[in-house]
Design a protein around this nucleic acid. Structure first.
Lengths: 357, 357
DNA sequence: TTGTAGGCGTTATCAG
DNA sequence: CTGATAACGCCTACAA
């Protein structure tokens, strides 16, 4: 197994050691039927002995493939994105691909720069899980003919392969659940405005509020950017209203946690005084001390499906029509939601479910 | 702008459009002083117009560099590793490198296979944050001359670039803190036996116990693998002892959380009946409902320093001696530790600290 | 069944 | 200052 040379063995080294031509070695190692079995065996032994492994670089240049795909996420340190990535990774690894990841920090300029970096590398495809819904990069990729899949981010104008979830159904379910508990003043903490998923979550909330109550008090809408701090700020905002909400639906779990923290600091009980729901079901939500009622999106599956679509697109670059995969979510009811304080006195009722880990 | 051809523009396309030779284009774009300023300007304009970007593949083959490094972590969905990766990523991105990540799931075979995949790609270097301390892969990499850095995993025999933390100091501090609170029967939940970091954490615990109490009851040692489930199991194990521990030091936060869950299920109060400490300070630990006393390792810094070392090694492959960087940790005291129940009655005392997010 | 030649897209070297 | 040539390591027609 040692090399003996100061560099990785090349196909020429193997050829020389075997007394054969490089092309024969190539054919033998590729399992082509043309080479005689004994020759193949010799080649394989020799390659093994020299520790020969074909250079992905050279092969990539020749074949115009890298067997690497790139993933752009907002922040790999956010468990939701980490789960997405984990899903992609498993699927890609099974197909012999590796995965280059980049965190954009929701920064469009950084995203553009990262995209350029990745494109220069001539990756086989890209999964975009952080792109703004109106980004110019998406049409550009399309024009360049680079295979890509949008993950949980829909583009306003460019029809694309897309994997997402029923965001609107998720928030609607949260609202319905709260309404069934007697809540009427249900507030919403939004996600980043340029994210299509955040838009859908808002739309689900709006739709269900309209259906149930015939309308919506716009003061119950707080801006947010998925960071916990915005959840805290939203609470401060809500509590100065003439009629504060009795329930808060947050567009993601982090903001829900932030809101809960702030409510607690302000001396309000959850769910006694205010019910709270989140979105994403990051593992924290399931911890018994938290028990956050939230919408579970099956993040790993989302990542895996995105990888699936991308692999398909790499196989048939321009051919097929854009495909869409929408996974269903489910409302996981835990302990942060309870009866509305006006229709029923604050209770300490808890519907604990089995923790996920 | 657009390409017009069905493929990325090549240096030849630019050369042709300019009426120059490819080598001149190359020199012009590389900013070499030999080309006349007007020529350079023409080339730059044309390259821009054609949307030319040098192929990393071809350049990599020629230069024998890929400007990509690989990172092997146990599980990117684990916040500790995600933080490490985030630290690497930021540092590498600043230097124009991209990062390929792989989760090994603590599986040696998978790790070997992933390593092979990455080596075939001829990456510029590797950061190993999941490798067992006795893995054969490390000497192999050394022999191959592939730049690599071990992160939080020391190898038993192969001197290597290494970035780690004072694991032993961390657990020792936890024990000291508990001892100061009057605890004497302090149990320990171990990490995976083949991880050097886990070994150091155990050693720190052992050392401090010996120093303080002159010895150690081996029944206070539970096996673990960093998964929450092992924390639960450890509690079951401890509670059947004739003299159960009044405090538990876990080798990571997940196991600490698992232990806390189980204690709670068994009707024991934390810290009233049993104090618990963790290790890693994942963001969950800082949530006010949890308030886990734990050791903070500055994960992102660890990742960043590993990237630093690797970049240095890539610059001077064999030259320099192996370097070591050890970052200090700090004990973050929160609400899961309190006075020992025998020396003082269980109290509801809480030392809440400011939440990190 | 095996060998030869050419080219994937770059850049370094050296000649003009 | 610019251009021709070779080479990085591999695969694939096609020739022998």
């Amino acid at each position: 197994m040692p090399d003996g040379l100061g560099r990785p063995a090349t196909i020429k080294d193997v050829a020389r050691a075997c007394g054969l031509a490089p092309s024969t070695v190539s054919n033998a190692l590729a399992g082509k039927a043309v080479v005689r079995p004994e020759t193949r065996a010799l080649v394989q032994r020799t390659a093994e002995r020299l520790g020969y492994r074909a250079s992905g670089l050279a092969r990539g240049l020749r074949l115009q493939r890298t067997w690497t795909v790139g993933a752009l996420v907002a922040d790999i340190a956010n468990p939701f994105f980490a789960d997405l990535v984990r899903g992609m990774e498993d699927r890609l690894w099974a197909e012999g691909y590796s995965l280059a990841i980049c965190s954009t920090d929701y920064d469009a300029d950084k995203e553009t720069a990262l995209l350029r970096l990745l494109l220069d590398k001539r990756l086989d495809g890209l999964i975009l899980a952080s792109t703004a819904s109106d980004s110019d990069e998406v049409p550009r990729l399309k024009r360049l003919g680079v295979p890509y899949v949008l993950l949980n981010r829909r583009h306003v104008s460019e029809p694309s392969d897309y994997v997402g979830m029923d965001n609107a159904v998720g928030t609607a379910a949260a609202v319905a659940h709260l309404a069934a508990l007697g809540h009427r003043r249900i507030a919403f903490i939004q996600g980043p405005p340029r994210s299509s998923a955040a838009g859908e979550r808002l739309a689900g909330y709006r739709g269900e509020m309209r259906r149930r109550f015939g309308g919506l008090d716009e003061s119950l809408l707080a801006p947010g950017d998925y960071a916990a701090e915005q959840g805290r700020a939203a609470v401060d905002r809500f509590l100065v209203l003439p009629a504060p909400p009795t329930a808060i639906v947050a567009a993601n779990d982090f903001m829900a946690l932030g809101a809960m923290e702030r409510l607690r600091e302000r001396g309000l009980a959850v769910p006694g005084d205010v019910s709270v729901t989140g979105f994403d079901d990051i593992f924290v939500a399931a911890l018994p001390w938290i028990g956050l009622t939230t919408v579970r999106p099956h993040s790993r599956d989302l990542g895996a499906r995105a990888a699936d679509l991308l692999l398909g697109r790499i196989g048939a670059p321009t051919a097929a029509e854009p495909r869409e995969v929408i996974l269903t979510s489910e409302l996981v009811v835990r302990g942060t939601t309870g009866p509305a304080p006006l229709s029923a006195p604050p209770s300490s009722r808890r519907r604990a479910t089995t923790p996920r880990r």
